[in-house]
């Protein structure tokens, strides 16, 4: 099968409150692959996630984001979502008064551009819940309200399962989870993953990679991707730290 570039980020600059966080970042992701994005605190991992999703405070000051061959740099978050991009939040937002069930039906309708009846959707959802080993009581609760850290992440993955996006950004899906919960959430993600989907998972910890094996590891330091490669990069990071990769990069550039 021909390799398809699903996301092409070119020379992306993003300023947050006058400070440049992404400094000419380049990134190409292929369809059907899983990428891990690693890097030190403040390197711009979450900024990149927001910038791809189109958060108004993280708009590109320079450069472009091309998704499935279309320049989406100026599109709103919802337009990007409707084209197939999904961001699983590090800190999912609470929406009181809206049940997870109703919300899932709403986003499913948006995704499929139709109006599926609650009964029909209920059947569909039950199958998904079973597949993901989730409790049915879960969906009767208000969206993320009073959810534990683990429940919030499960809510994100359930939304992802309903939307079945083409590009998924997992922003520290492992943060705040104990080892058992990481396994559960990882299993859910692996169940949903398919050859039409690309995953970019942002993480601080190598632990997540034990559960979800990426095809490629990307390293971001100071607003740029400084290295990409296979598992050998993990050894380098463990031994020498992220900055060694950046220095190496600078060295290569010279």
């Amino acid at each position: 099968m021909r390799e398809e570039i699903i996301l092409d980020v070119k020379d992306l600059h993003v300023k947050v409150e006058q400070r440049e966080i992404l400094k000419g970042l380049n990134l190409r992701l292929e369809r059907g692959k899983i990428y891990a994005l690693m890097g030190p605190n403040g390197a711009g991992k979450s900024t990149l996630a927001y910038a791809i999703m189109g958060h108004p405070r993280f708009m590109a000051s320079k450069g472009s984001i091309v998704f499935k061959g279309e320049d989406i740099t100026e599109l709103s978050p919802s337009e990007r979502a409707r084209r197939g991009i999904f961001l699983a939040f590090q800190y999912p937002i609470e929406i009181p008064g809206i049940t997870l069930f109703n919300f899932l039906r709403m986003i499913s309708n948006i995704r499929d551009n139709k109006n599926i009846s609650p009964i029909e959707f209920s059947k569909l959802l039950k199958a998904k819940l079973k597949l993901l080993n989730l409790d049915e009581d879960f969906i009767r609760r208000y969206l993320n309200e009073g959810f534990s850290g683990g429940e919030k992440k499960k809510s994100e993955i359930l939304q992802m399962a309903i939307i079945n996006p083409e590009l998924v950004i997992l922003d520290e899906i492992d943060s705040g989870l104990d080892i058992d919960a990481i396994k559960v959430v990882s299993d859910m993600i692996k169940t949903i993953f398919n050859e039409n989907m690309t995953i970019l998972m942002i993480t601080h910890y190598q632990r997540l990679l034990d559960y979800i094996k990426p095809d490629s590891i990307l390293v971001i330091v100071d607003g740029r991707i400084v290295a990409s490669g296979g598992y050998e990069l993990i050894g380098v990071i463990e031994k020498e730290g992220y900055n060694s990769l950046e220095k190496k990069k600078e060295y290569e550039r010279v």
């Binding site: 999703m53 978050p77 990007r80 979502a81 939040f89 937002i93 929406i95 919300f103 986003i107 995704r111």
Partner: peptide, 13 residues
């Protein structure tokens, strides 16, 4: 942030 969260799921503003 609530708006952005919902927009990221495809809802318009």
């Amino acid at each position: 942030e609530q708006i952005f969260y919902l927009e990221s799921r495809g809802l318009d503003r």
